[in-house]
Write a protein that binds this DNA or RNA. Structure first.
Length: 471
RNA sequence: GCGGCCGUAGCUUAGUCCGGCUUAAAGCGCCUCCCUGUCACGGAGGAGAUCGUGGGUUCGAAUCCCAUCGGCCGCGCCA
């Protein structure tokens, strides 16, 4: 007999069926036993009486054991229906029950939302934590949202392309995670902070409309809405304009909201375009929360922030790019760019939602002279530029379509959509505040000497930190 | 790197300010027994805590002091 998923039992009244799942709760009444059984689709009440030959086995069954049940789905008598659960109009009369796996008592309750439970404990036993309804729904919505975006972009002619995870350290920007190379002792790959340069080279390749669901890595300190490892929906297209890109992502997130989160109200359509200077003047931030009521989780206040300054200056007088150096300045006179960087604006844009920056992008400099001028303002020497970005200049020298793009911080978007305060709630196995993953116990210093030797790595022991090791 | 908050049974917390009425309390969970219609089942009983760790002050420390470890949030950082 094939196993059916629990939510489908509703349509099988008076039929024999097999279900599998976890014991959610046990209610014992002498010679009648009720088990609520849960699988990923839902929960159903099952019942067994002392006349059943499996009754003695059933009496020993405890919450979270994994069982297989064969029985008859019955409509419940009117007064025994439970309108509070999806399958509350039916129950399964157990004919036979088999224990597939016993379970220890879980270290914490999984019937609650889980917010009250010590997070370190939740992370250590994440595979149990994910059993709770809220987490299960977060994971399912994550899947649906990603699928929605993938389908949306596919329908508009975008090609999904995977760029390397083992890539090259990028100067400036965030710290890189480095990976030692065995075949090239002393050389390192870096994990991508974003697929930025690869996707621009795909434009040189003529692929025109690219997207990727891209894992990105930044070795910086974490925040409630920031992880070291995260997912971007990364988009780039050729022969485009700022407005075309804004309209594309606007349509994508409006559809996403209306299809998957119909309870949400989008405050303003089309999204307002607000200049950076106006945002700073009015709200003192470039990611303002524009909701009427800041406590209203159902209100989605999207806005595009545009017209960013190209450069910002540190206290020491060093210039850096507000976004990244590939962003196209609005000024095309390279002399003016170099002479007064403070006056230069860029074709950068951010999408903000309820006080969170959820996407950022720009039109890119495809003119090598402008790109070079920007690098010079940033204080790179000519040979440095050749060394670090020569590949991009060379690529551009073979003909490059004007192009631009955008990248979504996917988890941040999802976090807001799911009314979560923390990005960890929408990630299956997230990192703690100090960058550890507690289920596996990463990072680990428990590396075989032989492995280190192959990689030509010597480790200076840091006694102070060793106590934190999980393995 | 800096700042704030936090750490007491398996879980969530009370007690900490103001040291002794504490043999450290409660709810949930767990174990045993009873119960044929519950669905947060109910009833009876029971086990379970060297109060994060180390040191100090004191006749006496969960409580005061010092150090240390761990967690969360924020700042820096995040092209």
């Amino acid at each position: 007999m094939d196993r059916i998923i629990i939510k489908n039992t509703i349509s099988l009244v008076n039929e024999r069926a097999k279900i599998c799942g976890f014991i959610e709760s046990v209610r014992a009444h002498g010679s009648v036993l009720f088990f609520d059984i849960r699988d990923y689709s839902g929960t159903i009440q099952t019942v067994i009486t002392s006349s059943n030959e499996d009754y003695e086995v059933a009496k020993k069954i405890r919450p979270e054991w994994v069982v297989e049940v064969v029985g008859i789905v019955k409509e419940r008598p009117e007064k025994m229906k439970n309108i509070n659960i999806e399958t509350g109009e039916v129950e399964m009369e157990i004919e036979s029950i088999t224990v597939l796996s016993k379970a220890k008592t879980p270290p914490f309750s999984i019937s609650s939302s889980g917010y009250e439970i010590n997070e370190e404990l939740r992370m250590k036993y994440r595979y149990i934590d994910l059993r709770r309804k809220r987490m299960m729904e977060n994971m399912k919505m994550r899947h649906k949202a990603l699928l929605h975006c993938r389908n949306f972009l596919n329908e508009r002619g975008f090609t999904e392309i995977e760029t390397p995870i083992l890539t090259k350290s990028t100067p400036e920007g965030a710290r890189d995670f480095l990976v030692p190379s065995r075949l090239h002792p002393g050389s390192f790959y870096a994990l991508p902070q974003s697929p930025q340069q690869y996707k621009q080279m795909l434009m040189v390749a003529g692929l025109e409309k690219y997207f990727q669901i891209a894992r990105c890595f930044r070795d910086e300190d974490l925040r409630a809405d920031r992880q070291a490892e995260f997912t971007q929906i990364d988009i780039e297209l050729s022969f485009t304009s700022r407005e075309e890109i804004l309209e594309l992502v606007e349509e994508m997130v409006i559809q996403l909201t209306e299809v998957l989160f119909p309870e949400k109200k989008i405050k303003e359509k089309p999204f307002p375009r607000i200049s950076y200077n106006e945002a700073i003047d009015k709200w003192g931030t470039d990611s303002p929360d524009l909701r009427h009521d800041k406590d209203n989780e159902e209100e989605m206040a999207f806005a595009f922030i545009v017209d960013f300054p190209m450069f910002e200056q540190s206290e020491k007088g060093k210039w850096s790019a507000v976004h990244h150096p590939f962003t196209k300045p609005t000024q095309e006179d390279t002399k003016k760019i170099k002479k007064s960087p403070e006056k230069i604006f860029s074709l950068q844009y951010d999408l903000v939602l309820n006080g969170h920056e959820i996407a950022g992008g720009s039109m890119r400099s495809h003119d090598p002279e402008i790109l070079m001028a920007v690098f010079e303002v940033l204080g790179h020497k000519k040979e440095d530029i050749e060394n670090k970005f020569g590949h991009l200049f060379e690529a551009f020298s073979y003909g490059v379509p004007p192009h631009g793009g955008i990248a979504f911080g996917f988890e941040r978007l999802l976090m807001v959509m799911r009314n979560e305060e923390n990005i960890r709630e929408v990630i299956a196995f997230p990192k703690t505040g100090d960058g550890r993953e507690l289920t596996m116990g990463t990072p680990s210093s428990n590396i075989e000497k032989e492995q280190l030797k192959e990689l030509s790595i010597k480790v200076e022991k840091n006694e102070k930190k060793r106590g934190k090791e999980s393995n």
